[in-house]
Design a protein around this nucleic acid. Structure first.
Lengths: 214, 214
DNA sequence: TGCAAATGTGAGGATTACTCATATTTGTAA
DNA sequence: TTACAAATATGAGTAATCCTCACATTTGCA
C-alpha cells in the first residue's frame, strides 16, 4: 500500500506503472511528506486550488522531486483517494461479515451509513476528493471499482437472506444502493446539517426497503 | 431567455451581472454562434478539453469578442446548462400537472424517467455538463436550484395524494427522489447500456415505493 | 452628418502544470 | 577505503492556455 502511492492514473483513466517507486528510506519519507502537504492544502482550499509549487514548498522538496514520484497533479489526489478506499473497504467487510437475518442487516447497514456520513462530514479531504469524482475519469473509475467491491459484501448478505431471488437482480440492487449512498452523502454534506440529516435518513429508509423487501 | 445567456457564474458560485448583454441584432447572432461552437466542441471532446481559442475560431469571432459576452470559460458551459434546465422544467411541470391519483403518478413519473434517460443517452453536451456538475460550484448550485424547483412539482402532487403526511417529510422525499434521479442517470450512462437499463429500472421502483408508500 | 455607445480585434500579460540537464547522495562491490 | 552506477534532488526554463486591454470599427440616433 506504501509503494503504490506512486502508481498513477492517466488521461484515459488507465492506471500505469509508477514514474519511479521510492526504494530508499529517504525518498519514502519524502513521498509521505508530499502526500501530507497535499492533504493539508486540499483541506484548506480544495484540490482544484492546490498548486504543485505549493505542495513542493510545504513538503520541503523541490518541484522536480514531486514529479519524480507523481507523474501529474491528479496522481497525488488519486493516491490519497486510494488510501481512503482501502481503509473503508476493510471496515465495510467487517460490518457485513456476520449478518445472518433481516434485522441484522438493518442494524449493520444503518451503522455503516452513519459511519460514512460522519466520515464525509469530518474529513475535508475525502469530501473534496469525492466531490470532484465526477469530473476526473480516473477517480470516477476508482470509485466505480470501489463501489462494485463494496457491493460484493452486500450481495453476499443478500444471497444468504434471499436465496430464491434472481442473482442478477440482487447484484443490481446492491450496486445501485451503494452508488446512491455515495450520491446521498455528497448531497447531504452540500446542504445544511439539518436537511442533510433528513436526506440521509430518507436514503436509509429507501435503501433498506429495497434490500429487505420483495 | 435569450439575453440571459450572458449572465455568468463566478468562483464562489454566485451569479453576477452580465459582462455585457448583447443588445444589437448583430451581436445576438454572434453570441448564438459562440454557444453553438462551444456546444459542438463539448460534444466532440468534452468541456474540459474545450479551448476558448477554438470556440472563437469555430464561431468566426475573435477571442476578445468571446470575452465580451462571457466573463470566463465556465460561463459558456453554464449558459448551455441553463438552457437545458429551462427546457426540461416546462416538460416536467406539464407531465405532473394533472396527476390525480397514485396510478397517475406512477405513470407520469415512469414516463418522465424514461424521457430523462433517453435525453442523457442522446445528448453528449448534456451528458458532459452534468457529469462535471460536482466539480463546478456554480453548476452544482444551478443543479441544486433546478432540482428544488422540479421537486416542487412533485411536492404539489404528493400533497394532493397524501394530505395527512408531514409537509417537511414530503419535501425531503421529493427533493431526495429527484436528486437521486439525477445521480442515477449519471451512473446509468457511465456503464454499459444493459446494466444502465437495469439501474434505471431499480431507481424507478425505489422512487415510486417511496413516493407512494407509507 | 456627427457623435456616443456598442461592438470587434488580437498581441501580449499572467499563471501554472510539467520537463530536463545537471548535481548530489546512496548502496555496494572490489 | 575507494570507485562507481543507480537512485535521488534541484530549479530555471518550456509550453499551454485563460484572460486583459488599448485601440479600431460599426451602429443607432439626435
Amino acid at each position: 500500500m506504501e509503494g503504490r502511492s506512486a502508481v498513477s492514473p492517466q488521461q484515459d483513466g488507465q492506471v500505469t506503472s509508477p514514474r519511479r517507486a521510492p526504494s530508499q528510506q529517504r525518498s519514502r519519507e519524502r513521498v509521505e511528506r508530499m502526500l501530507a502537504a497535499a492533504s493539508a492544502l486540499i483541506a484548506e482550499q480544495g484540490s482544484d486550488a492546490m498548486r504543485m509549487g505549493e505542495v513542493a514548498e510545504r513538503a520541503g522538496v523541490s518541484i522536480g522531486s514531486l514529479y519524480q514520484f507523481f507523474p501529474d497533479k491528479r496522481a497525488i489526489v488519486w493516491a490519497l483517494a486510494e488510501r481512503y478506499t482501502a481503509e473503508s473497504q476493510a471496515c465495510i467487510a467487517a460490518a457485513l461479515k456476520d449478518v445472518g437475518d433481516a434485522e441484522g442487516l438493518r442494524q449493520a447497514f444503518s451503522e455503516l451509513v452513519d459511519i460514512y456520513y460522519r466520515l464525509f462530514l469530518a474529513e475535508p479531504v475525502m469530501r473534496d476528493i469525492w466531490s470532484g469524482t465526477q469530473a476526473d475519469k480516473a477517480l470516477r473509475e476508482l470509485e466505480l471499482a470501489d463501489s462494485r467491491a463494496n457491493a460484493e459484501f452486500l450481495i453476499a448478505v443478500l444471497r444468504r437472506l434471499r436465496p430464491a431471488a434472481d442473482p442478477v437482480a440482487l447484484e443490481t440492487t446492491a450496486f445501485f444502493v451503494w452508488q446512491m449512498g455515495e450520491a446521498a452523502m455528497r448531497l447531504a454534506i452540500s446542504v445544511d446539517r439539518e436537511e442533510g440529516d433528513r436526506l440521509v435518513a430518507t436514503y436509509k429508509r429507501m435503501a433498506l426497503r429495497e434490500l429487505l423487501a420483495e
